[in-house]
């Protein structure tokens, strides 16, 4: 077993322990040791598939991504509310294919998660080999708007890579044409 795999397992064990302590609501030696035991048992019984993560977390990028995510969440929620109360109007929609520029498993998953949490966009299908996301967008009435949405998704991918990506992924993003 490689060293990176051990590091991943330690991170997973600590994460599970943290959840256990949060569930108990108080940090005592008993909850910590108990949580650690449960985490080790869980990881032995249900081993995680190996995740290749070559990047590191960039605090500034993470902050920018987080703030922009909250902003998107509020704006998009308001848009869906407006659509819901616009009687006599049927909202159009579109399924847009977006090819990510630097598709790693983690990048694809994070982009899909962030996209799904924001109202108005829903992942219908994902092609892992080619790094393509098929996104259902609500409130789109023309092909031009669908194209604009594709640019928004690529911007989101750029922010995610700037927050979590590896050096190679960041190079791909910064060398690519601005969308």
């Amino acid at each position: 077993m490689t060293r990176g795999r051990w590091r991943d397992r330690c991170v997973a064990a600590l994460g599970l322990t943290l959840i256990w302590v949060l569930l108990w609501g108080s940090f005592t030696p008993l909850t910590f040791i108990g949580g650690l035991l449960v985490a080790v048992v869980v990881l032995i019984v249900f081993p995680l598939p190996p995740v290749t993560y070559a990047g590191r977390i960039h605090p500034v990028g993470l902050l920018r991504f987080g703030l922009r995510f909250v902003y998107d969440l509020v704006i998009a929620s308001a848009q869906v509310v407006v659509l819901a109360f616009r009687f006599g109007h049927t909202p159009g929609s579109a399924i847009v294919a977006v090819s990510l520029r630097a598709p790693s498993d983690l990048g694809l998953t994070l982009t899909a998660e962030a996209l799904s949490l924001v109202p108005g966009s829903l992942i219908v299908d994902a092609d892992r080999e080619r790094g393509v996301l098929y996104v259902h967008v609500l409130g789109v009435s023309s092909a031009l708007e669908a194209d604009r949405f594709r640019g928004d998704v690529l911007d989101l991918e750029r922010r995610i890579i700037q927050a979590f990506g590896s050096a190679a992924e960041r190079r791909v993003i910064s060398s690519g044409a601005p969308s």
Binding site: L73, V74, S77, V80, V81, A84, T90, P91, S93, L122
Partner: peptide
């Protein structure tokens, strides 16, 4: 508003937006 959208939106995919998202915020 999510409940209203769930009733009003035309097809299943549009309704999924209402059924899963406004609750996030």
């Amino acid at each position: 508003s999510a409940g209203v959208a769930l009733m009003r939106f035309p097809d299943l995919l549009s309704r999924m937006h209402a059924a899963t998202k406004p609750q996030v915020l």
